[in-house]
Design a protein around this nucleic acid. Structure first.
Lengths: 216, 216, 216, 216
DNA sequence: TATGAATGAGATTTCATTCAT
DNA sequence: TATGAATGAAATCTCATTCAT
């Protein structure tokens, strides 16, 4: 077959690559397999992306763009922390559902070591860390959130729970783990998961030590 | 004498293997490199562990044993949830410091996909999930912990935070991420990290929404 | 008009091909590179020349034609050996200057092995060998050239020096070698080269060992 | 077969490599073919020589060493030019017979272009050029050789004839060419070739212009 | 028994050639 | 008709595994 590689085929290449890299890692992924899965010749794969490393980077970039898009959508609207958290959780749950491959790749990369991993961290977490810390500090100033905790740490724990939320939705290990803890799959339990996480966060973020309950 | 030497070699092999597999993944790891790092011949490596897969499994088992040991130590003593949480956090922080390689391998495996990952989840998380849920349910019954949340979910979020705590101590991505959120390295900030996490958990676990049920 | 364009393209293709084959050899040459250099599509290249081998042959033929033309020009005019040698040397020096690519290809082919190389030898050297031997034998009969040497051998050594003269003008190795022996580039030293080569040949071809036969 | 690669096998690898590179060029040579010809696995070939380029260099170095050895043997003994020339010619004829592969590789490399070819020229010809020019200048000073020619040019033409002598013995093109000029193969005609070349050189080097024959 | 050189299947990558546009 | 993107066979190179020493 010699027809021009359609947009759609390039799309399929990236999808297949994201999936394969997420599953097998950079070293374990097989370029021929990826090309076959995408229904494209190896030559075409190399023509478009140069080499394995380059193709890997393209898959990664694609994942990051998708994640950025989701976050941008949430971040845009001004809101209090509660509303804000709810929106993020819902957005990430949807992202997990719709772009499981990206999350898997993200999880795999975060697990890999070396300079690349550190750079990736700066690339991905740089934005969110500042964003969360800012929003939380504002919430503290407004009296909406507890003042007895370091906003940086609050943001950190918040993001920890969100990262785990995503992995739970997409990665085999984390899905199975969810089943052990809560029964069922993350999808079936999505509503419950969202509700309970919000309760958990609500308490963690608003309760102030010494029993002095912050005004609702 | 000879046996001792052999055991020491096996030890070194596992250490080297854990490190290499954590860093490069199963596919990316190089058996010759591992043998060289351990100062052992490739032949010996194969003699003891059969093949790459088998050696990988041995490295994994070793990591799990170490983790089990730590948890067993903590679990043994009866205590209230607060004390219990403090002990686990401290134990895991120490584990991260002393057995970074194991945690890295654990992180890498959790990120990989497939049936193996699911089995691994059952193997690792089966114990802790029941343990945590039980302890939490007891705490709720005793009135120490909030009753308006599913104990399974509470346990799940608790473990989420603990997993992230471990990754934060050992894996490049997560370490850099910590730096972005909180500044400094997890080691330098260990005390602060422990303190704030406890505060966070304290609130999340004990605050009850005073009957004001979060709107559905 | 269209035909003219096409012919110009074919011309450019051959030029590019001669250069690439001379530099990289048949195996090392890249058809896409050649087409691009000539500003022609790969499809056109294949349309005109069938395949790589065929195109290579066309490049070769073109080189041989050019060489034939030069020799024909020289050979046409009747003259004594001295005059004859001078003309050939000048013609080859000019040919080297103007058609360096052809000479380079010739050199590369002569260096390659196999049946093709042998056929090429017959094709190229068949004419000149008979021509030189004949002219030299005539010179000997006329008393212009020494009689104590085999005319075939004289012709052979003569052509040896002429081949080296051409390579010296065009090929990197031989150019550098000239610099080491004589200083400067063959172009700068063209006059000197011509003069000295003529002196060398004059002596080699006319000196007779005065009956003192070199001891066996 | 897993026995240790004997000296002899490494030897065979280099022999096979020299032959293949001489015949096919760097690009055209096939590493698998070379390994097979030498009766050695591809892995072993790569273990010893790193990559194709490195193996090529090793083949080249081996050829140069062999050539150096021959020249060193000739150069050692002090002698007049006639004796000297006879020795070199004989040595090179023998070298061609015994190390045809090296000469073929040498010929192929000299035909290739680029910086490598220039460096190779300096490496190979640097020694001989100075040596020949020195010996010839000494001969001129002693009155043994004609004084009306540039010693550098004399040395250059001398080496030209010697290079062609070697190619004639080993390379398909040059062998066929010899047959066309002189009939028979260079081996069968070795004695005649040597004798006639010496006569040719004798005249070219001792005859002085203007008919004034140099004293014998 | 322990070693590590040798093996060769399999991975990445290139490029002559085709043919839909 | 002319183009050049797509193809996929074949090349280079790696590395898990074996087994002669």
């Amino acid at each position: 077959m010699l027809k021009k590689l359609a947009e759609e085929q390039l799309e399929r290449l990236l999808e297949a690559g994201v999936e394969e890299f997420a599953l097998q890692g950079l070293a374990g992924a097989n370029m021929r397999t990826i090309a076959e899965r995408a229904g494209v010749s190896v030559g075409a794969l190399y023509k478009y992306y140069g080499d394995k490393e380059g193709f890997f980077r393209a898959c990664l970039d694609r994942s990051l763009e998708a994640l950025d898009a989701v976050l941008a959508e949430v971040i845009g609207k001004e809101a209090g922390f509660r509303e804000y958290a709810r929106r993020i959780i819902r957005a990430l749950l949807r992202f997990s559902r719709e772009h499981a491959g990206y999350v898997r790749l993200y999880c795999a990369l975060a697990a890999s070591g070396g300079k690349d991993a550190r750079e990736l961290a700066r690339e991905i977490e740089g934005v969110t860390s500042r964003l969360y810390a800012g929003t939380i500090a504002a919430g503290q100033a407004a009296g909406d959130l507890r003042r007895d905790m370091d906003p940086a740490m609050l943001a950190f724990f918040f993001d920890n729970l969100l990262m785990m939320l995503q992995f739970t939705g997409c990665c085999d290990y984390y899905r199975e783990r969810f089943r052990l803890y809560c029964g069922g799959t993350p999808e079936d339990q999505e509503e419950r998961l969202e509700r309970e996480l919000l309760k958990f966060l609500e308490a963690a973020f608003t309760f102030e030590e010494a029993g002095i309950i912050h005004e609702a």
